[in-house]
Design a protein around this nucleic acid. Structure first.
Lengths: 218, 218
DNA sequence: TGTACATCAGTGAACGCGCGTTCACTGATGTAC
DNA sequence: TGTACATCAGTGAACGCGCGTTCACTGATGTAC
């Protein structure tokens, strides 16, 4: 090897990371090989030393995105009692920040519309991602003692994904906020996490208290 | 006028209808002017007698789709008491048929991922469509006496859209069915429409009975 | 230690294709006389 | 009623651009002696 053993691997990783961002921001159809390579500091010709085709890149990048999404979930929920963990994830998922950060956000809303038209490999990768997130949410729900945890998790994930998609698509910022807030409230309510979004200035203390008094909190 | 007065208008309508189908099936990026015109029985050159650009077509086709979606809603719910109407819409929306009929289905799941990247005009059209459907669902919910009808409608629409998107994207048919069923059940439950999906052979009689005994039924 | 050689990640020009858009033209049909 | 003319929806060739992919080449670096 002319370069050290990990050199090519590191380059591939850089390309994948840029692709994962670009695909979420622009969609798998709108991104270009040349653009992604340029972002990784390379020229387009070298692309085929790392990937067999653009489709191959998309599939590999999806795996990358779901790894990031899982890591995000774990970071947000680690060390929290299940109710607080779920609340944290819902608040993150349906936040203005997440809505406006397509590049680094959850891959599900970004990809769901284009995926039915992509290949089987991409859809399997996606299916694994959906299953993974559902299981994570389901785990927290059964820790809360919900017997219907798995189905409720699927339903909750659907609402998260749908609400974020709609909030991102709508032209009017007010309408977008309403969509996010409606689903934040509805989800917390139906998962037994809170009565509703508390008023802004009271939020912090109420949350602290509800965590202290919640039965499953340690 | 060399052709009768409505001739051009009818042609435009035909193109729009084909565009509305193609866009939902393939996405606004994947469709081509030539393909749509061919489906309408024309050659691509004539396109610019009807539309200023491809983007213009997409916006106009979106309006067409939402008209179709509203008509569908009205057809499914007309003459039914609110609970039965909502149940009918949920069952339609989260059915295998709807999942597999992207061409003629609801535009929200098909377009949500691509829309943030389209122009303002398209997003305003979309926003109007979202508001329209939310209002229709909200109307039924407040007829059921829910004080939080509008917010609950937004939340429900989010779950419908998200569940259909995920069910369409996933590779495994079993997993897809589970996603649809989980949200059908969860939605009916939280909207107070039924306990859960009844077993197949009992469904018809149970539904009849629950309609008879439901307070808002005539 | 120093020099010649081999390797291969990355370069950049080129190809071919599809697609949005333009435009000169056609020919079916309504109108004027 | 019949004929010449005017209109304009629709045709189809052509253009230009972007993009995925190919390929001959480069040059930095590790290895052999």
């Amino acid at each position: 090897m002319r370069y050290d053993a990990e050199h090519k691997e590191r380059t591939r990783g850089r390309v994948l990371k840029e692709a994962a961002k670009a695909i979420r921001a622009e969609g798998p159809l709108r991104i270009g090989v040349a653009g992604v390579m340029a972002k990784a500091g390379l020229t387009h010709g070298g692309f085929y030393a790392h990937f067999a085709s653009k489709d191959d890149l998309v599939v590999a990048a999806m795996s990358q995105m779901f790894d990031e999404a899982s890591a995000k979930f774990d970071r947000l929920t680690a060390g929290k009692p299940p109710a607080a963990a779920l609340r944290a994830y819902i608040d993150f998922y349906l936040s203005r920040q997440h809505r406006d950060a397509r590049e680094t956000g959850c891959p599900l809303p970004s990809l769901s519309a284009d995926l039915p038209r992509l290949g089987v490999a991409a859809r399997q990768e996606f299916a694994a991602g959906v299953a993974g997130l559902t299981a994570r949410i389901g785990g927290l729900l059964s820790a809360l003692g919900r017997p219907d945890a798995e189905l409720l998790a699927s339903s909750s994930l659907a609402e998260l994904v749908g609400a974020l998609s709609l909030a991102r698509s709508v032209a009017d910022p007010k309408q977008s906020e309403v969509i996010l807030k409606a689903s934040r409230n509805a989800l917390k309510l139906r998962l037994g996490l809170a009565e509703s979004d508390p008023p802004r200035q009271a939020r912090r203390s109420i949350r602290r208290e509800s965590e202290r008094t919640r039965p499953n909190a340690p």
